[in-house]
Computed example of a mutant assay.
Amino acid sequence: MVSCVVKNWQGEDVGEASLSLKVAKDENAAHIVHRALVRQQNNARQGNASAKTRAEVRGGGRKPWKQKGTGRARAGSIRSPLWRGGGVIFGPKPRDYSTKMNRKERRLALRTAFSSQSENLVVVESFAENLSQPKTKELAAALTRWGATADKRVLLILTDISENVFLSARNIPYLKVLRADSLNIYDILVADTIVTTPEALAQLQEVYSD
C-alpha cells in the first residue's frame, strides 16, 4: 500500500491518496527488477555495428612481395588484420540484442519498481486548467513548489497529456512526461521525484493491477 499527501497547484496539502499494487517478494524483487531493466536497455539497442573481416576489405588479392629473399617478414595480403587498413579479428557484426521476458514478469517488475519509489512520490491535483497557455516558467515554478528542484530528475505521470502541458514541459531538461498506461521501468528507477495525479494513480491501479 502506497499512501501520500495530495497537493494543489500552490503546493498546499489538500487531501490524501493511496495505491495498492501487488509487488514481488523481498528475496526476488531486486532480481526481477534488474532483469526487466536489462531487457529494456537491450531491446533499445540497434545492433547494427559492423566491422569488415579480411575477406570483406577491398584489395589485398596479390601477395605484396615474394615469400623469401627480401629480408622482410613474409606476407600474403595487405589486408591482413596485422596491417593498417586490414580486416578486423572478431569485430562486431549486426545482431539482435533483444531479450525476452514474460508479460506477467514485466508487469510485476514495473509494479515493484514503482512501489520502491513511494518515498519520492508526489501527488498533485489535476493542473491542466491552470495552464491556459503554454508556460514553461509556470510549470517549472509549480514543480519547485511540489518539491521537485532543478537538480533532480522528475517524472511526471498523467492520464492524458494536453498540448499546453506538453509544450510547457518539453523545454524543462530535468522533466520527463509519460502517460499512466505507458510507463517503463527505466524512467521510474532513474527518477528522483515522481509527480502524478489522483486520476493517474487510479489508471495505474487499473492498468497494472495484475
Score class of each variant (00 low, 15 high):
W9I: 08
G11M: 03
V14N: 08
G15R: 02
G15K: 05
E16Q: 15
L19N: 05
L19S: 01
S20G: 01
V23M: 09
K25C: 10
K25Y: 06
D26F: 10
D26N: 14
A29N: 11
H31W: 04
H34D: 12
Q46S: 15
G47Q: 00
N48F: 13
N48L: 13
A49Q: 10
S50P: 11
R54Q: 04
V57N: 04
V57M: 10
G61P: 02
K66Y: 02
T70A: 03
G71K: 03
A73D: 04
A73P: 00
R74E: 11
S77V: 05
S77A: 10
I78S: 11
I78L: 13
R79K: 02
S80L: 05
S80N: 01
L82A: 08
R84E: 12
G85P: 06
G86T: 09
G87D: 01
I89M: 07
P94A: 08
R95H: 03
K104F: 13
K104Q: 12
E105C: 13
E105L: 12
R106F: 05
R106H: 13
L108R: 04
L110G: 08
L110S: 02
F114Y: 04
S115A: 15
S115H: 15
V123W: 05
E129I: 06
N130R: 11
N130I: 11
S132E: 14
Q133L: 10
Q133Y: 09
T136K: 10
K137I: 04
K137V: 11
L139Y: 01
A140E: 08
A142T: 00
R145W: 11
A148D: 06
T149F: 12
L156T: 03
L156I: 01
I157S: 00
L158G: 00
D160V: 03
S162A: 11
E163M: 10
N164I: 02
N164W: 06
V165Y: 12
L167W: 15
N171R: 00
N171H: 04
I172G: 01
Y174P: 12
V177G: 05
R179L: 08
R179E: 12
D181F: 09
S182C: 15
N184I: 05
I185D: 07
I185S: 10
Y186K: 15
L189H: 10
L189W: 03
T196H: 01
V207S: 05
Y208F: 09
